[in-house]
């Protein structure tokens, strides 16, 4: 491997913290959520009143859901009000035709093996930005709204009901709301696979240490040995 020629501080601590809290929350939410939909563990022995087996799964799901929501809001706050240019989504302009132009096309071509070289970005490349917008921003917003609406069903007339109860009629019925939440949850396992593959592949092909960058914050440029 060639010499290390550049070290760039890309992911500041708030972004890294967000990433890991988000990652662990999503894993916990998907696991507990699927269990709630289909409780497979054998029933406990003894009287029902002494057991809290199923209620604990729901409790963990709710607790983590609030952590996940708070973390998401914190990330939005950080994007809007910090001066961290790699965290601000500044380059993401899907409403402008120019954004879909050369850089986006080049990146797609590269993923489809239509070009030899790999375009290199310090922050997210345009395709990654779009994927994050669809899966993480839209997906999380959808899951938070539908989840909070279902949580509000537990206490009609409460603050949560006033804040999120309006979501339920949009889906037609409580069952549809549950169903939408359930089916949308599958985007997260789907996304995690694609995300992990893309990160590992970029790390191997571009050698920018993108994998460790989300722990250390630094991306690296390595001199190509052929060029050296």
């Amino acid at each position: 491997m060639g010499r290390l020629i550049e070290e760039i501080y890309v992911w500041r601590l708030p972004v890294r913290l967000y990433h890991w809290i988000n990652a662990f929350s999503i894993v916990a939410l998907v696991v507990t959520g699927l269990y709630i939909a289909s409780p497979v563990i054998n029933p406990p022995l003894g009287e029902a009143v002494w057991q809290h087996n199923f209620v604990m799964w729901r409790y963990v799901h709710y607790c983590v859901a609030f952590v996940f929501t708070g973390n998401f809001l914190y990330r939005m706050y950080y994007a809007l009000l910090s001066d961290d240019r790699y965290a601000k989504f500044g380059g993401f302009r899907p409403w402008s035709p120019a954004w879909w132009g050369k850089p986006f096309r080049e990146q797609v071509e590269s993923y489809l093996f239509l070009r030899q070289d790999e375009p290199n970005y310090v922050g997210h490349n345009p395709v990654a930005a779009l994927a994050h917008f669809i899966f993480i921003f839209c997906g999380s917003t959808f899951m938070i709204l539908t989840g909070m609406a279902m949580y509000a069903e537990n206490r009609p007339g409460s603050f949560m009901d006033a804040a999120f109860g309006w979501v339920l009629p949009l889906f037609g019925s409580s069952y549809n709301l549950h169903y939408a939440h359930h089916i949308a949850a599958w985007i997260f396992p789907f996304y995690v696979i694609v995300h992990l593959y893309a990160v590992f592949r970029h790390d191997i092909v571009d050698r920018t240490s993108v994998t460790s960058s989300i722990i250390t914050g630094y991306k690296h440029k390595v001199e190509d040995e052929a060029a050296a």
Partner: peptide
């Protein structure tokens, strides 16, 4: 069902990633 659709999607993602690799 929702779960079957989800599992097929996740399976497709894994297969796609393997093929791409």
């Amino acid at each position: 069902t929702a779960d079957k659709i989800g599992m097929v999607a996740v399976g497709a993602a894994a297969a796609g990633a393997a093929a791409h690799a």
